[in-house]
Amino acid sequence: MRVLAIDPGNVESGYALIDAETRRPIEVGKIANHELRGALLDGQLSDGIEVGAIEMVASYGMAVGKEVFETCVWIGRFIEASGLGLAPIYRRDVKLHHCGSAKAKDANIVQALVDRFASGEPNRGKGTKAEPGFFYGFRADIWQAMALAVMVADRIEGVHP
């Protein structure tokens, strides 16, 4: 089984397509939202995928800017385009799953992934072009999409790291 997860943004979004059993990345990227939507619509990313998730925006009572509202629009467009019924999952749940704390930062989540899948590997498990590592090509929002995908795969198997 494959799991697709999206970390949405107002202009670009990160995505991770992983093997649910091994948690190995099959395809990852950070691309323009219109390109990601197109890939979902034409089945490039959504065909053959049984489970999908998208990070959902949550309100904590603070004022937000137009970027947050634009991201919300894209979340809806991605859910509709996927045909999967992407499950909206809140960031807080991802933090608790990987770090055990709702106060965790992006860097803490990245470190939790590195510790789990590439412990002791140089360059945070990215490797090199000649010898790609587990996290080869990861940057920015791709890490957060991966964290979401791993959490979904863990939930499917009832795993609690």
Rank of each mutant, 00 (worst) to 15 (best):
T71H: 09
Q44R: 15
A130R: 13
L84D: 01
A153R: 00
R92T: 09
V110A: 09
I18P: 05
V150L: 01
V73A: 13
N123F: 12
P8F: 11
P25D: 00
D93F: 00
G52Y: 05
I18L: 11
G158L: 08
Y90M: 08
H97T: 01
D106G: 10
R23M: 08
F135H: 02
I156K: 14
P161K: 02
R24F: 10
I142G: 01
L113C: 11
G120P: 08
I49E: 12
V114T: 03
E50V: 13
G85E: 04
R77S: 01
V114N: 09
I49W: 01
Y90G: 05
N10G: 12
R124E: 14
L84S: 04
V11A: 15
T128M: 07
L148I: 03
S59M: 10
Y136L: 07
G61C: 05
D141S: 07
K129T: 12
D115Q: 12
I109N: 09
M151V: 05
Q44G: 14
L86G: 06
G158A: 05
A153Y: 04
H97P: 00
M62I: 12
W143C: 02
A153D: 06
Q111W: 09
P132G: 05
G48H: 13
V57Q: 14
I109Y: 03
A63W: 14
I6S: 09
R92F: 00
R116D: 13
E121F: 08
V73M: 14
D93V: 00
I75V: 15
F135T: 01
L113E: 02
V73N: 12
A39H: 10
K66W: 08
A39Q: 15
G52V: 04
D93T: 08
A118I: 05
G76K: 07
E35V: 15
G48K: 11
V152T: 10
H34I: 15
V73G: 10
E80D: 12
Q144D: 14
E70V: 13
R139F: 00
Y60T: 14
G125Q: 02
G83P: 10
A16S: 15
Y15E: 10
N10I: 09
W143T: 06
M62V: 14
L45S: 10
S46R: 09
A104I: 08
E50Y: 13
K105M: 04
T22Y: 04
